[in-house]
Design a protein around this nucleic acid. Structure first.
Lengths: 195, 195
DNA sequence: CGACTTTCCTACACCGGCGTAACAAAGTCA
DNA sequence: TGACTTTGTTACGCCGGTGTAGGAAAGTCG
């Protein structure tokens, strides 16, 4: 098997291991066992465990970024900030539903991952928070809202709710359907005063 | 040193280790090193690592419970659900500010902890969610609110925001003061329509 | 075919945590 | 003081993960 393919296979296997047994369980040894091969093969694809994790996150971040991009407000949303937010949440939740294994990485945070990686994740979260902050400011201006609202905290809260929604979906997809989560956001947005 | 005292000392040391080096770093060996003693001493206090973690959580849950109890609505809140929630959040956030190390346990979730313990934490979270669900129902009845609100999700969202507030406080206490967080909640509650 | 490269395995030395047995030191009390 | 308990230590064997060296097997190309 070519190194490239091997790498992909190993990353998928890593997701399996983590999903099944948790972060602690991800070792070079376990990874080798998972794809039924010996350790030197794994070492030929990745320098060490932290390299595996780094690749894993890089791949997942790629996907996360594309989800975020596709959830941003479009032209049609220009006059309806509420719809924009509802749509953004909907897109996100569906992405989680589509790739639960991958999103578990981000949503059920990794302790014990190298500090460098944790830092990257945190940095990305910050970027999303900034993105949402913009959205909130724009929405406030456009549609009105609570006067004196702490925009930054509002953005953080929205992010927290979105992430919690993702987690709920991961834990109990039947109980918490994307539809239900989306409806909830719509109700809340409808209930926020416009001045 | 008496076994009882030793146990307490070890639990404190465990918090130190986790705060400094993460969950992965907490081993019987590391624990022994931390209090400058040999492993058999640790083993004489706790059967194994999972026993240490269990004790740690039991102690922290005790504290968590008392915080929750003290944040519940009292007589004076009976006619003002908004104030009740604001107060609840305020109490919680202050508790976190008072014992950051301890709350880190709960708020920065433990992956790699034995499944049994993760289960306990999850169960407690569920209880808090139930508690908040009651509060939301009561508040809806009392003060009015969005019609057709998904009460369960509302409670989950509130919990998510509260926990996020706690995390923000842990990460950057200067930027996110208890006062600021409390003000934010007050603003939001004020902005939710009453019918 | 035969030389060469790629892919993989076996086998090793090493490390660090686990858990226990056996024993030493110090305090307690009849 | 001498027996007993409590508290601690040293020292061992075990396990499982790490990383690497050396060589087998299979595929590739002149």
């Amino acid at each position: 098997m070519a190194v490239e393919d091997r790498r992909e296979q190993l990353l998928d296997a890593a997701l399996d291991v983590i999903a099944r047994d948790g972060w602690q369980a991800l070792t070079m040894e376990a990874l080798a066992r998972e794809v039924d091969v010996t350790r030197p093969v794994v070492y030929s694809a990745f320098r060490d465990l932290s390299a595996v994790l780094a690749s894993l996150f890089r791949r997942q971040e790629e996907r996360a970024r594309s989800v975020v991009e596709s959830s941003l407000p479009t032209m049609e949303d220009l006059d309806d900030p509420d719809a924009a937010l509802v749509r953004a949440v909907g897109r996100f939740v569906e992405a989680v539903a589509d790739d639960p294994r991958g999103w578990r990485l981000v949503l059920l945070p990794p302790d014990g991952t190298p500090a460098a990686i944790r830092h990257i994740v945190e940095q990305n979260r910050q970027q999303y928070a900034d993105r949402i902050t913009e959205l909130v400011s724009w929405g406030l201006e456009r549609r009105g809202g609570p006067s004196g609202l702490d925009v930054e905290l509002a953005a953080r809260s929205i992010l927290a709710i979105i992430e919690e929604a993702g987690r709920l979906l991961l834990v109990d997809p039947d109980r918490y359907s994307p539809q239900r989560l989306e409806d909830f956001v719509r109700t809340i947005m409808g209930a926020l005063t416009r001045e």
